[in-house]
Deep mutational scan, measured.
Amino acid sequence: MLEGKVKWFNSEKGFGFIEVEGQDDVFVHFSAIQGEGFKTLEEGQAVSFEIVEGNRGPQAANVTKEA
């Protein structure tokens, strides 16, 4: 699992990017966010995740919000 911070997330469109120190930003789709209820992320929020190869390159999977 990697750790990063949410760079930005558009809850209307359901996607955004996660910043990872020393690496390129990683695309995140709302469907990759773990948990119940409305799936969104806040700018600057700490998250842990895995990287998988998507249709358009690397993207986040199994995203969990850090306490």
Rank of each mutant, 00 (worst) to 15 (best):
L2S: 15
L41V: 06
N10Y: 05
W8I: 04
V52M: 09
D25F: 05
K65E: 08
I51G: 02
F9C: 02
A32G: 13
E66F: 12
E53F: 14
E36H: 10
Q23I: 08
K39R: 09
V63A: 03
V20Q: 08
K7P: 01
E66G: 15
S11G: 06
L2C: 05
G44S: 07
T40M: 09
D25H: 05
V20I: 10
G44E: 04
Q45N: 10
Q59W: 08
F38G: 07
A61E: 09
A46H: 10
E50G: 14
A60G: 05
G14K: 04
I18Y: 00
Q59V: 14
I33T: 02
A46T: 14
S31T: 06
K7M: 04
I18D: 00
G57Q: 04
E50A: 12
K39E: 05
V6A: 03
V47S: 01
W8R: 04
E43T: 11
S11L: 10
A67Y: 13
N55D: 09
K39D: 05
P58G: 06
G22W: 04
K13R: 15
E43P: 07
G57I: 04
F38L: 13
I18R: 00
G16I: 01
K13C: 06
K13N: 06
G14A: 03
I33Y: 03
N55F: 13
F30L: 06
E19D: 08
V63K: 00
E36K: 07
E12S: 13
A60D: 00
V52W: 13
F15L: 05
E42K: 11
E66K: 15
D25S: 10
V20D: 02
E19I: 14
H29D: 03
A67K: 15
K13Y: 12
E3N: 10
F27M: 03
P58V: 09
A67R: 12
I51Y: 07
P58N: 08
V26E: 01
Q45G: 11
V63R: 00
S11A: 09
G44Y: 07
T40F: 10
G16H: 00
G37A: 09
K13L: 15
F15P: 00
E42W: 10
G16C: 01
F30R: 15
A67W: 09
S48W: 07
E36M: 12
M1V: 09
K5D: 03
